[in-house]
């Protein structure tokens, strides 16, 4: 999977946001620091769930099980929004 390059992460007034615009509506996605970290590390690359989880275990004090669950939640949410394909 990979982050669709047509989406950009912006820092606006200290908030990390991604704008999602289609014909019907405009939405704004707000990312927390961990989600921002994953975005910055993985943008422009093809990656697997295991690689995303590995970034979390390497950089945060978190076990493999929890990291995999967190990474899956992140990829599932972005996938549902059409940002990760």
């Amino acid at each position: 999977m990979r982050i669709d390059p047509s989406y950009t992460l912006h820092n606006v007034a200290g908030e990390h946001i991604v704008l999602i615009q289609d014909d019907k509506e405009n939405k704004m996605l707000s990312l927390n620091p961990t989600a921002v970290f994953l975005w910055e590390q993985l943008k422009g690359k093809e990656f697997t769930l295991e690689e995303a989880a590995g970034l979390l275990t390497d950089n945060y004090e978190v076990g493999t099980e929890q990291a995999t669950a967190d990474a899956k939640k992140w990829t599932d949410e972005l996938h549902a929004l059409g940002i990760i394909r």
Partner: peptide, 9 residues
């Protein structure tokens, strides 16, 4: 701040 962005943008 998020709500402010949502108001202005």
């Amino acid at each position: 701040n998020l709500q402010k962005i949502g108001a202005i943008l």
